[in-house]
Amino acid sequence: MLKTRIIPCLDVADGRVVKGVNFVDLIDAGDPVESARAYDAAGADELCFLDIHATHENRGTMYDLATRTAEQCFMPLTIGGGVRTTEDVRNLLLAGADKVSFNSAAVADPDVIARAADHFGSQCIVCAIDAKTIEWDAEGNPTKWAIFTHGGRKAALDKDGHPIDAVEFAKLIESKGAGEILLTSMDRDGTRAGFNIAMTRTIADTVNIPVIASGGVGNLDHLVEGVTEGHASAVLAASIFHFGDYTIQEAKEYMASKGIPMRLN
């Protein structure tokens, strides 16, 4: 049966891993290719590179990283950050990425997803959605989530000046041909308090494409909750793996012990 995926994400700036990766046997912890190799050997199911500066001038560095990673890691590689046009997608795919993730550009113009999916196939087009809870019911349960851009600092507004509803936006980009949604809860990101479960479940149950849960993982139970309660098809995490709190194998074995189908061999 299909296994739940664990996807370590590396934040990259100017060709170097930003947060650093704390593995034994790593010659250069700041080199994304070295880190990718370590995750490949550790049994990660996919890898994600996020270009956090994504200035036009350093695109070439990202292409070079994709090429070098693809030469050594025979597993799916997603690259995101600063992707704006179908030409960006083409360049990243040619360089060696297997999937490319849109974010702000898809909020500004959802049709860019359609153009990219028509050209390259939905299977390689990911849409990243960064969202925060903006409404709660009388009992304090979250009921509405809105899209944020610019690292969660700026609320995205529609043409009438209203916040963009994350659930409606997820449906929209699914209809445009996105193959997968990378859903990050901006109110949880970096808190280590766990995923925004209500938002993850609402969106995962609404769309028929896979949803990757992201933002807020602090321990292995959070990964389990993302799948069992959040209904995510995959979980993405950065710091718990980078800093050596847990290995990929520990996470997989723990999730399997909770009844989640995992790829253990």
Partner: peptide, 12 residues
Amino acid sequence: PALKVPHMGWNN
């Protein structure tokens, strides 16, 4: 109906 399409990921 809980199974998504595309079938994406590792299967045995």
